[in-house]
Amino acid sequence: MIHATASGDGLARVEEFKGRSLWQDAWARLFRNKAAVVSMVVLGVIAVLAVFAPLLSPHPYDEIYWDRIQAPPDFANAHWFGTDGNGRDMFVRILYGARVSLAVGLLATTVSLLIGVTYGAVAGFLGGRIDNLMMRIVDVLYSLPFMFFVIMLMVVFGRNIFLIFVALGAVEWLTMARIVRGQTISVKRKEFIEAAHAGGVSNTKIIFRHVIPNVLGPVIVYMTLTIPQVILTESFLSFLGLGVQEPLTSWGVLIAEGAKVMEFASWMLFFPALFLAATLFAFNFIGDGLRDALDPKDR
């Protein structure tokens, strides 16, 4: 499981925003990007499906149908996507899995965002020795294999998948911190910050009022790329058998189960993989679209 640790570097060059018009511009440009628009629609549909999951299928997600174990898609019994190895409806399980997978992605990303942005902004803003020390810590953490962290977290917090992803977010913030620090350093030299300094505004206030809002662009882009990574990490953990506790499920768990029977119960792999792939594609295209849209030179 490889992490694109540096994918932010390219976008770190996005210039700071100069006012509302830029946001509006970016927005308009994003909507001209067909791939991004389609992706947003896809994500929207999946999110709606996940939210209304229990209303969309006659089957509860944990009901076992003993006479329909590993049954192919079947409209008579309303198993549109077939059933799994325990005789449970795949369609409703995929939707419940969507809840877990998406929640996990958002949760971990939010945690990494909070830590990464604060850490990076503080380091970049204070500069000097503190900055040096803080970035050294980041370097050390970077040199520890990500997998090791994940497994240790799994083992220690094994009981609760959400706790694990809070913890995972607490590991994922490193790249975010680097991007924000770089941005902060360049923002710091601008006139309006110096003006605020001269006006006696406190450091904390400057960081949260002025610095962070101005580095938001690249952060948002990086966020849209972190979410799919986290979802993929979750699926990898499921492959190792360390996924969410039954009878709850996630796309990763479903795919890991389906991968074992791909040759003759292909529906168990195909449908969850389709949902996962569509979601990952969508996030990535939105991320790329946002990057293009936020780059003022790109017109």
Binding site: D62, G158, G241, Q245, P247
Partner: peptide, 24 residues
């Protein structure tokens, strides 16, 4: 996992709530 899921549903008939918990 599959056996535990099955047993959970069998114990449900007795009115027993079973929480499943897997670890390494």
């Amino acid at each position: 996992k599959r056996i535990a899921v099955a047993v959970q549903s069998m114990w449900k008939q007795l009115g027993v709530n079973t929480e499943l918990f897997n670890t390494d």
